[in-house]
Design a protein around this nucleic acid. Structure first.
Lengths: 242, 242
DNA sequence: CGATGGATTGAGTCAGGTCAAGGTTTGTGG
DNA sequence: CCACAAACCTTGACCTGACTCAATCCATCG
């Protein structure tokens, strides 16, 4: 039994823009099913032209690129509400791979329907472009982190960033949120070695800013962490859900 | 006297997708004028909500973000055909600043017309989203460069990337293209210090791969340069022009 | 109970950073 | 036409943040 878009638990969160009933109907028609995958499952491959597009409903994942010599760059994390396959939909090739880090539930859309969906629903089309622009914005920030921040600032930046996303998704309870990634994932996201990432986390722990163990992230003082990260504002911007 | 979209010199280049006559008319209606600026002129500021959007017609520029302590990250270069202000159009705030490096000529569009333009012209809307996706793709590559490549590979990557863009724009003649940036710009783009960028360029020069002086970039052996950069393919993907 | 995947820590090295000093070119005012 | 300044490029010397290599520890699991 798949979740009806009308009953979508995500749409209720304040993070996501309100949708008209019409839009909900349109989404429901576009949605062809639901997919449940185990942790570790690859969802899309870099360079592939997937026939399916997804929206993460439950669970977490990550987007990454592989270099020919095996080095890996984690491009972003995937959290509930994230649209997966935008590049495949618009261009026709993914620029990165996506895999499930935890078990995930995904809404499935049919890529072949994408163009008519886009053409006939300008408001939804705009929402999709909006998502692309947000991702571009995020990647600009990430680039700045890798290029300009020190390891300490970078790790702090990454953690405050996910934590803030977690807050908006109601994943945070009493400063705690589930964070099922490995240190290697964060290292690969920040262009740091595993060892140095580990030492840097230790430093943040000793400074009483964060602790991260057993898949749980605890941010003791978000503001102080943001200061270390040199992040100016952590404001809520509502976003469309697709 | 402004350039008519019908006579747009860019549209003729094979890099850009063909447009229907109807699309050209629509673009012409959306275009409100032309802007000429001197080198060094700021075009859009990070965080601003510009009333104007642009397409670069002639000249080069760059996109950058500033950190609160003055460090700068160059996010991308701006070459003819690039759309400027996408983020302002879709979200309502730029994630980076844009400035002219050389004198530039820009097509000017009215942001307040953007939504109706987007709504009434799904094919053009799709083209815009396509551009956003391409930018996202590029930024993923750039992130991988900063995160995983060595300084030598990174500089090689940056140079082969612009050179390849230059080729598609007919800026290259006999392996030479205009390249009006400062070494500091490239350093800021790659998260390297100026000094190290300079030494790295020297190495590439000594290896007979590239030379760059007096605002002119000469790539002696593109394939070898791509090898150093660990770039697999440098293929032509046509793109829409807005 | 050994095997496997992750986290942690120590020791030594190096890629890339910082500091500092010229060199060149271009533009400007006297 | 020259002197001076400003902007950029280049090189040397030295330093350090982050990397690599290598153990060790700890859970989980078949």
């Amino acid at each position: 039994m798949t979740t009806k878009c009308a009953d979508c638990p995500l749409r209720r969160q304040e993070l996501f823009d309100r949708m008209t009933e019409d839009e909900v109907r349109v989404m429901q028609r576009f949605k062809v099913g639901e997919l449940k995958v185990d942790s570790g499952t690859p969802l899309l491959m870099e360079g592939s032209n997937s026939p399916q597009l997804f929206t993460a409903l439950r669970g977490m994942g990550l987007r990454s690129k592989l270099l020919s010599d095996g080095r890996r760059q984690v491009v972003n994390l995937v959290l509930p509400g994230d649209f997966i396959g935008l590049q495949a939909a618009l261009m026709s090739e993914m620029g990165h791979s996506v895999e499930a880090t935890t078990a995930m539930t995904l809404c499935v859309f049919d890529r072949s329907e994408f163009w008519s969906f886009f053409r006939d629903n300008p408001r939804r089309a705009f929402a999709i472009s909006w998502l692309a622009a947000v991702e571009e914005h995020f990647l600009g920030d990430a680039l700045t982190t890798l290029g300009q921040r020190t390891a300490l600032q970078a790790v702090a930046w990454a953690l405050i960033k996910v934590f803030s996303r977690g807050q908006h998704l109601d994943l945070v309870h009493k400063n705690r949120m589930p964070f099922p990634y490995r240190q290697q994932d964060i290292a690969d996201a920040l262009g740091l070695s595993l060892v140095h990432t580990n030492r840097t986390l230790k430093q943040l722990r000793e400074r009483q800013l964060v602790s991260w163990q057993d898949g749980e992230l605890v941010v003791i003082d978000p503001q102080k962490l943001a200061d270390v990260a040199m992040v100016e504002s952590i404001e809520l911007v509502t976003r469309p859900l697709v």
